[in-house]
Design a protein around this nucleic acid. Structure first.
Lengths: 195, 195
DNA sequence: CCGTAGACAACTCAGCGGGGTTTGTAAACG
DNA sequence: CGTTTACAAACCCCGCTGAGTTGTCTACGG
């Protein structure tokens, strides 16, 4: 059935990342230990270190994984609203807001609060904004490519997306009203800015 | 010169608040004790309790004091830019951003990070957004009154101001680039939204 | 070879008193 | 009225301990 090659060449790494995401979703980052990941995936603890290097590198890998998914989701949302910049951008951010509320990892990945209950960020304090900056640039590029009708330069798109992202993060950190209210505000702001 | 009434009827309260602000600016909220305030103002500790009630109420009073000053500053900035909504609003927020950077109390009052070095917020966690909401409404009213040329309804002004406020807080909590960058972004966003 | 198992020092972190300070209240004193 | 003094309860910092983890190394085995 399978190729004759070793059963888990580099696929083990993905299983480990998935296991880590599971543990985080269930019990938070504090509950993630290299030994637990090894047990869940069925490898030795040493193998985990061989694959991931260290716990800090695991955190970084999870960041990249999550931001990639975030950008992919935005790309899908935009593709679902061709020729409708306000609708597409709004859908993307609403979708992200809802996803982030359900997924603590994404909330953290996007730069949520620093002193949360987990000491996740302390590991990433090295370059907390680099992740966001990458995501902002990627999303801005998606918007610019899909909505050429909106007459914004590349740097203007970047400024706008960063502002929207900050607004979104603000709603994650401080959910003043209902999610309804947050989405409504974002829709209005996006509408005004793209008018 | 003065009325013959008692030398410090309710003026003691203001001196106490000022003393508290001084201590906070110098050594942070943790260094604020009722006894220290009493010593600085020259009254007994019991009088401090009579005037302020409790330390939590002191915190609340400081919040109100600071947000009032914030609104007053915005009002001044707006008055300095008659007939120029974008200029006035931008100046107000730039001014606030700079003031907040220099004044830790304002930074906290506007809803800065939770797990700062001080346990100031833990006391206010009761209603963290009520303060902001009041400030947003007040500022929105100022804008609406001074810039009737901008065709926004009262609730639209409120939405816009809340968004700008969240953007400003975001820059306080996570000063990605330089203050220049933050101000530039805010100017651009405000310009687009008021166009 | 590649992964496993076991051992290891260094580190982190919750739990635990103890001591000092502070809060908040209540009395008695000008 | 405001000031003292007193006092219980709460809080916070400190040093300590013990369990759990990290990261590395070495020996073992298919």
């Amino acid at each position: 059935m399978n190729a004759v090659t070793h059963p888990a060449p580099a696929r083990t790494r993905e299983k480990l990342l998935a296991a880590a995401a599971d543990v985080i979703e269930a019990d938070g980052w504090a509950a993630v230990t290299m030994g637990k990941l090894a047990g869940r995936v069925g490898v030795s603890r040493q193998t985990v270190y061989n694959e991931l290097g260290s716990k800090a590198e695991l955190a970084k890998a999870l960041m990249l994984r999550e931001t990639d998914r975030f950008v992919a989701r935005v790309t899908d949302d935009v593709a679902a609203h061709p020729g409708d910049p306000v609708g597409g951008v709004t859908a993307a951010f609403r979708h992200t807001l809802e996803a982030a509320r359900a997924n603590p990892l994404l909330e953290i990945a996007l730069g949520g609060q620093q002193g949360g209950r987990d000491d996740f960020l302390p590991l990433l304090t090295s370059q907390p904004e680099a992740v966001i900056e990458r995501a902002v640039d990627a999303v801005a590029a998606v918007f610019a490519r899909r909505y050429p009708g909106v007459r914004l330069t590349a740097s203007e798109w970047a400024v706008a997306v960063e502002a929207w992202m900050r607004l979104l993060l603000s709603h994650l950190v401080q959910p003043s009203g209902s999610a309804e209210h947050a989405v409504g505000q974002m829709r209005w702001v996006i509408g005004r800015m793209l008018a």
